[in-house]
Design a protein around this nucleic acid. Sequence first.
DNA 1: TTTAGCACTCTCAATACGAGAGTGCTAAAA
DNA 2: TTTTAGCACTCTCGTATTGAGAGTGCTAAA
Lengths: 348, 348
Amino acid sequence: MNPLTERQKLILGLIVQDYVESAQPVGSKRLVDHYGLDVSSATVRNEMAELTDTGFLRQPFTSAGRVPTEEAFRFFVGELMHRQELPSSLKHTISHQFYQARHEVGQWMRLAASVLATQAKAASLITLPQTQQARFKHLELIVTTGKHVLMVLVLESGQVIQQMLVLKEAFPQERLSSTAEHLNNILRGQAASEMPAPPQEMGTLASEIFLLVKAEMERLGSGFGEVFHDGWTNVLAEPEFSEGDAAQRALRVLEERPLLEDLLNQVMNDSQIGGVQVLIGGEGRWEHLNDFSLVLARYGSANAASGYLGVLGPIRMSYGRAVSTVDYVAGLLSDMVSESMGGTEARE
Amino acid sequence: MNPLTERQKLILGLIVQDYVESAQPVGSKRLVDHYGLDVSSATVRNEMAELTDTGFLRQPFTSAGRVPTEEAFRFFVGELMHRQELPSSLKHTISHQFYQARHEVGQWMRLAASVLATQAKAASLITLPQTQQARFKHLELIVTTGKHVLMVLVLESGQVIQQMLVLKEAFPQERLSSTAEHLNNILRGQAASEMPAPPQEMGTLASEIFLLVKAEMERLGSGFGEVFHDGWTNVLAEPEFSEGDAAQRALRVLEERPLLEDLLNQVMNDSQIGGVQVLIGGEGRWEHLNDFSLVLARYGSANAASGYLGVLGPIRMSYGRAVSTVDYVAGLLSDMVSESMGGTEARE
DNA sequence: TTTAGCACTCTCAATACGAGAGTGCTAAAA
DNA sequence: TTTTAGCACTCTCGTATTGAGAGTGCTAAA
């Protein structure tokens, strides 16, 4: 209830720090010995008793050391933690790697997943950058052989969708090109929701393609598409998951798509690009995350495409490192998005 | 040494079957009771003692039941197993789902991973279909805004590569289209290895794009690209992985790319499309797979693109189900590949 | 060759016990 | 009033012990 004294904050911070490193309950004596406190262990014990009453610490059993509660981690993240920025030499290396991967979105994603996982020593998740509302930009139809036609659909956000179509009959490339050109003129700048039914006078070929384009843009609007990830072995290596079903529960976040979509929508629904959200434990809402924490951010640019990224680790994770890593990578990806899709903001 | 008698084969088969279901060592009495053998448990014990000498069974400790060795599973898969085909109603449902996903390769992959994981109750892995040698088919350059240009590169295998380029100066669409057309004429049908250096007389823009195309096609040639997967929770749910580091070792197959590439290259190097390879235990060569088995197949069409797919589960897995599932899905994907890239075989 | 019978072996679960760690409390010191 | 030393107390964890039970291997008879 009462605000914590400075000394209590110090002790709480040290307990969190020690527990994060050791995964062991922390005792009063250990605290005094290792961190050179200028009070005795008895004094620490008194403070610890108080912190236990306040709900920040708990004892696994009568005479073990103390373990921080989820509440303590939330307090730590909110008020005690200081970021552990990546060394700038490392930042240079990383941004150089991103520069080399600049051409292909899939490569950014894999790289970002790998960097997040390695630096935060946790599992990482990233969704593809997507627009709120997909808008048509350009359509290209390319004959491959006979009835097989490759449809390449470009959205204003820069997303590209490719589909292989098998038509009922073969058409020459010129016919397909002119059809594509025709549709380009009709559809440019439109969202799926604004598209009418194909006009009566439109040819069979054109209206078939029209409907495919519309259907595909509608499909794009739902869900996050592919989710990239890395570093699950980091999580499985943590002692708290060496037995029991916790690890399995966490993997469900990856494999049961609705779970992840629900989670991101609820946690990030009002978050701006630039901030980092920390979810500690299931927060009573997500049982399968009961022993895990998530550090999440949104990246991209507000009026073009944006996506989510984050790391998942044990509650006992190094938040200082995780938050600054997530923040840094989110910034990098935001730069990548606005650079490579640079034109799109000009629509304003 | 001596070939097994029919009765020994029967008993070995039953032990494997029972152990797969129960995950418990199998005793002689249990065998007689549950499977209605018309011999006594003492007789079974004698046979079991012999099978133990031969190396097909082992006892976890002096007086537990018997557990099949890896050798036994290999024998089982080779000679005793009968496939457990999926019910045909299920096959219909599945092939219908594939039909609906026919337009986009990523969707096939996700669907196939999901079907494999669900039906074989194991983790699934699939690589994208790729050609041995990427051949240029078509290039398209699309202005997005100002200096930002989208490059769409189509290969004869049907693969499409998209890249966002930022040029040094802005060009009008017509200029880019004619450059693309020019390159299309020069490069059609060529593999990266056959491409010369860009001719001197070629313009700066054209040769810049030329080099990008070449570099990208070379990059494509190495590695499997993205690997789709599903069903790791199935594996983590197995009792043998509830503790220990086995689960972590298995996930490394996914997260350490060279491991997977090495594995697929060695196991599948001479395999034809149509066959199923079974890898039981690490086979002494892959330590991290020591407690796991893999059922692998190649799909695609020999002269167009092909890829690998398979499931990973405990050694104690239901091979009958896994083999027929992998085989069935491989067949489906092969059909998808040859249908959607149908034209390509015509090159012959 | 098969089978009944039986002694034997080894695991697993339950129990007991001591060492050790860390606490909470009390009373003295600052 | 706050801090500290001292100490009894509590509880876990590792080790040792024990008994029940499961399943075997062997022997001798069918």
